[in-house]
């Protein structure tokens, strides 16, 4: 398994990276490389020109300003897990990152790569949806910020325009009365999810004031289970309601069939993972 030939450029700045994307047809960004390089080794993907954005200053790191946490796109999964800021103000990201791949891969894999790749099997897209994250994007025309909700358009297809780079992710810090949950069913360590679900709830006593449910790997892209959210919003959650929520989630799923399971299994597993995440999120919110 050997990739085809390509040229390699280590970008010195975001502007440099964008310029190289513009100047070289079909150029691709190299972030952690643990999705791209295996694809290139299997020759499922060919890129004549790779722009390595690992060395760019300012693309890494986690900071908090008021209620907003900013995460550099090139922050690795391991750095997410080790972050005191995230552990305190956004533990959902920590929990999700722990379930990504394995320790070595987490040392290279980045949150930006995971989000921008557009792979429905990646974990962070659903987490971004549940967190209502904002994505900071740089392109030839400057910076823009767009919500994660609406960013994921299909398999390997996002709202990123040509020559654009995802540079940072902004997520709200956890406030009192909010809770989160993440559950992922996988065949083994290192595998993509059979199904996964990220949930964030805002509670008002026993009543769910607001909820966002993101689903992993059960549609061409990460999706919000909006019909299920509508069922819960403004309600107390009990078994009867959860059953209805599960049905709504199954209906929302459109998974690809593979060795992990057929449509029926994956859709039901999405419902089970969501149920578990909802229960976990409500429990968390009480603490």
């Amino acid at each position: 398994m050997i990739p085809s030939c390509f040229e390699y450029h280590k970008a010195t700045s975001i502007a440099d990276a964008i310029a190289k994307l513009q100047d070289n047809e079909d150029a691709k960004l190299l972030a952690g490389g643990h999705s791209l390089l295996p694809m290139m080794k299997l020759r499922f993907s060919e890129a004549p020109y790779l722009v390595d954005i690992n060395g760019i200053e300012g693309l890494k790191g986690i900071s908090i300003d008021g209620d907003t946490i900013t995460i550099g796109a090139m922050t690795t999964e391991s750095e997410l897990i080790r972050s005191d800021i995230l552990q305190q103000y956004c533990p959902l990201l920590v929990e999700a990152a722990k379930l990504v791949a394995d320790p070595q891969v987490r040392n290279k894999g980045t949150i930006g790569g995971d989000v921008a790749h557009g792979d429905p099997g990646n974990d962070h897209p659903a987490v971004m949806l549940a967190l209502d994250a904002q994505l900071v994007i740089h392109g030839p025309d400057g910076e823009r910020m767009i919500p994660a909700n609406g960013f994921f358009l299909g398999t390997y297809w996002t709202a990123l325009e040509e020559y654009e780079i995802l540079v940072a992710i902004k997520v709200p810090a956890l406030t009192s009365g909010t809770g989160h949950g993440y559950h992922k069913l996988k065949r083994k360590t290192g595998d993509y999810a059979v199904a996964g679900s990220a949930v964030v709830v805002e509670m008002n006593g026993d009543v769910v004031r607001d909820i966002r449910i993101g689903l992993t790997n059960v549609a061409p892209m990460a999706i919000r289970a909006e019909a299920a959210e509508d069922l819960i919003r403004g309600k107390r959650v009990d078994d009867v309601l959860l059953k209805a929520v599960e049905k709504a989630i199954v209906a929302a799923c459109d998974p690809a069939v593979d060795l992990r399971g057929d449509e029926e299994y994956k859709s039901h597993m999405a419902a089970i993972m969501a149920r578990r995440s909802i229960i976990q999120a409500i429990e968390n919110a009480k603490e």
Binding site: D102, K188, G190, L259
Partner: peptide
């Protein structure tokens, strides 16, 4: 519990990398 070499009707082997072929890790 996990290893299998399924073939589709055209005789294509489904799952011939360690992504799919089950070699249990420390965790499983």
């Amino acid at each position: 519990m996990g290893q299998e070499m399924p073939y589709d009707e055209e005789g294509n082997l489904l799952g011939n990398t360690l992504m799919d072929y089950f070699l249990p890790t420390f965790v499983e």
